[in-house]
Design a protein around this nucleic acid. Sequence first.
DNA 1: GCTTGAGTTTACGTTAACGTAATAGTAAGT
DNA 2: ACTTACTATTACGTTAACGTAAACTCAAGC
Lengths: 133, 133
Amino acid sequence: MSEERLFTISDLARDFDITLRTIRFYEEQGLIEPQREGRQRLFTHRDRARLKLILRGKRIGLALSEIREILDLYELARDEASQSLKLLQLLSERKKQLEEQRNDIDAVLSEIVVLEGHCRQVIDTMTGKDATA
Amino acid sequence: MSEERLFTISDLARDFDITLRTIRFYEEQGLIEPQREGRQRLFTHRDRARLKLILRGKRIGLALSEIREILDLYELARDEASQSLKLLQLLSERKKQLEEQRNDIDAVLSEIVVLEGHCRQVIDTMTGKDATA
DNA sequence: GCTTGAGTTTACGTTAACGTAATAGTAAGT
DNA sequence: ACTTACTATTACGTTAACGTAAACTCAAGC
């Protein structure tokens, strides 16, 4: 069972809103390894999942080289986790980075809220909605 | 009062752990405008603050062009906020982006926690600390 | 007077992550 | 047979954000 439905390159490009070139580039970089039917690429659900991880990694500012590391770690963890201790260390490093990044984002978000407050005040003042009125 | 202490380029490079070249590049791009004493650059606290904002922007994945926009907005807001409505709109857009980014980070962080759990379990199993024991 | 140290300008080099042709094969529809 | 749609490979081009090297100034210290 589970006839493993396959995807074409344009399927994935459409689904994730990226170009064909991007997908081919990721294959070229060894991030995904689609099957071939003749010359044509055919992608499994696994490829799709990896692509999703790649794009999420990009969104949080990781380089492709780092994403490759992480994908490798996923494989490693799935296989035997023979070097689980090393993996744990790498994970905690990454976690620290991400937490710092989130702190930065939070800081910027608070500043934005403050700025918004200033703006609203200025606008209210200019439009006569003064507190003294 | 407030004799406005000045910083040299190496002061800032050391403080923020960046190269001289980077600072000169930011000036070249119009992100900071240090005074000159002869040819030498001299930086005020204001320059320092802007540099800090620039680096924070970089850490959350903004391009220099976007950072420049934001710095401009800060100036604009400080001046009169004549176009405060437009500013508000831009701020809310940026906020949305940042919140999405934070969601991505949170997602990755949870996945890491799960992976860590798997690793610990594998390690425990391999070292004999089995739950059935 | 010479070296050392910190600063300067100018300008070509580099890396990542694709963009953008140009050219060609292949299957389906008419 | 011809067009259209989708795919492929090859390969040069592009942008951002600096790196790096060369050549120079200028004040301080010995």
